[in-house]
Simulated assay, not measured.
Amino acid sequence: MSALTLTTPSAERPRQTRWLLRLHRPALCAWGALAVVLAALLLALAGPLVNAAADGWRQYRACGMNPRCSYDQAAIMRYKDYYNYATIALNLLPFVVAAWAGAALTGRELESGTARLAWTQAASPARWLTVRLAVPALGLVVTTGLLSRLHHLAWAAGVHRVDSAKEWYDRYTFHANGPTLAALTLAGLAAGALAGLLVRRTLPALVVGVLVTGGLRAMTELALPHLWPAVTRTGSVDRFVPVDGLEVDQGMVTRGGAHVPAPSCDSTAGCDAAYKDFTGRYDVFHPASHFWPLQLTTSALLLAVTALLVTACFLTLRRQTGALRPPKPARTAA
């Protein structure tokens, strides 16, 4: 009589997930603690902190030009500082994830040989990598999605109430307020994992992952204003109207209707001569109604880049380990 001993893919996947969570428990606990602290801070910003700051600004406006009038400056500064701390922290999350993914998720396991040990325990390299990308990705999407929603509530609570509130197009506020935060975090995860697979050493992979994520962020900043059709507004030459939105371009309108950059001048006579042939000014910008179109198109771009990075991860692993088929089941005689 013979029996077939094997580990099925459906049974192997939960075991790989449990092993991953156990192996990276310190990072999981640290991430959870950070998320709880940020969530508590954002809830405070949306409630008592913004209310106190709004009262302080009302007092300040009521004072007018009276130098002896007092107002709650501490509440105003406290709200401003804590908002900046929370917003910067959210913008740094993709870099933290990239550093962890490069150093611990793939780089350290390849450097120490833990990954090769896992591949000998009926887990193919492809399944090993799939679990290491899919499980953190799920947790990151849930966490960053919740935090960005809380940040948007905190930001909206201060609009029209706190004079120092950030505009919607402030780049740190923009990315903390919507799904681009989750998309860039996933890109950081994929970039870090790829760095670990390529470098196969902990610290160098950490550095490479962070640098690649920084490059993606810079690329996003350059592309963002051009991912959705902007609004063009024209006006007279001698009247400058501030743009209330994300500015893309500005300049002068010629007599033929062409849009050209504004000329430089350093004197009244020189400016009169330089501007005499223009009929007006133009401004190209994104109004507040473009917030969600810009968020969604930017997120789509980042997710496309993430897909390319994930594909590169599997191709790199295939090149390093050969075919990504699971090992043949062992047959034992009884």
Rank of each mutant, 00 (worst) to 15 (best):
T254F: 06
G192D: 03
L38T: 00
G245K: 12
W155G: 11
L224H: 08
Y275F: 15
L90F: 09
D277S: 14
F278D: 08
A183G: 02
T268P: 05
Y79F: 15
G215H: 03
A89S: 14
G113H: 11
V305H: 02
N84H: 13
A300D: 02
W31H: 00
A300T: 09
R25M: 09
R25I: 04
D249I: 07
S112V: 09
R58T: 11
D238W: 12
A333R: 11
A3K: 04
P242Q: 10
P327M: 09
V50R: 13
T143N: 00
D266M: 11
T321D: 01
R319M: 03
V131H: 00
N91W: 09
R15A: 14
L140V: 10
H290T: 05
E111P: 05
A11N: 10
P48S: 12
L41Q: 02
A44F: 01
L203W: 15
A183T: 08
C63L: 01
H175M: 10
H226G: 06
A187C: 12
A137Y: 08
M65C: 05
M65H: 12
A33V: 12
R318M: 06
V241T: 15
A52E: 14
T232Y: 05
L317Q: 13
C69G: 14
D244H: 12
P67S: 04
A103N: 10
Q295I: 04
A33E: 02
S124I: 08
L138Q: 06
A30P: 07
G270C: 07
R15C: 00
L227T: 07
L92C: 14
N51P: 02
L43F: 08
T144N: 09
T17Y: 07
L21F: 08
L105Y: 12
R325F: 07
R319W: 10
T180R: 05
G32I: 00
A334I: 04
I88E: 09
H290C: 00
A27K: 08
T120N: 14
G196R: 04
L324M: 15
A330N: 11
C265M: 11
L4P: 00
P125N: 04
I76D: 09
A98C: 09
V96I: 15
R281I: 05
C265Y: 11
R255D: 06
R325M: 04
P136A: 03
R68D: 15
V310K: 04
N91R: 03
R149H: 12
D266F: 13
P229R: 05
H259L: 14
T316R: 15
A330W: 06
A122F: 10
N177T: 09
D81M: 11
S124V: 03
S124H: 07
N66K: 06
D283V: 10
R281V: 03
Q250Y: 12
L302D: 06
A134N: 03
L294D: 07
E247S: 11
T202W: 01
K166H: 11
G47P: 00
A99K: 01
R132M: 01
A101G: 07
G257P: 01
A74E: 15
Y71K: 01
P225R: 07
R15F: 08
Y275N: 01
L34W: 02
G209Q: 08
D55Q: 14
T297R: 14
H151P: 03
G192A: 07
V207C: 13
Y82E: 15
T5Q: 14
V159D: 10
H226I: 00
N177A: 15
A187H: 05
L28G: 12
Y169C: 01
Q295W: 08
Q295E: 15
G257W: 09
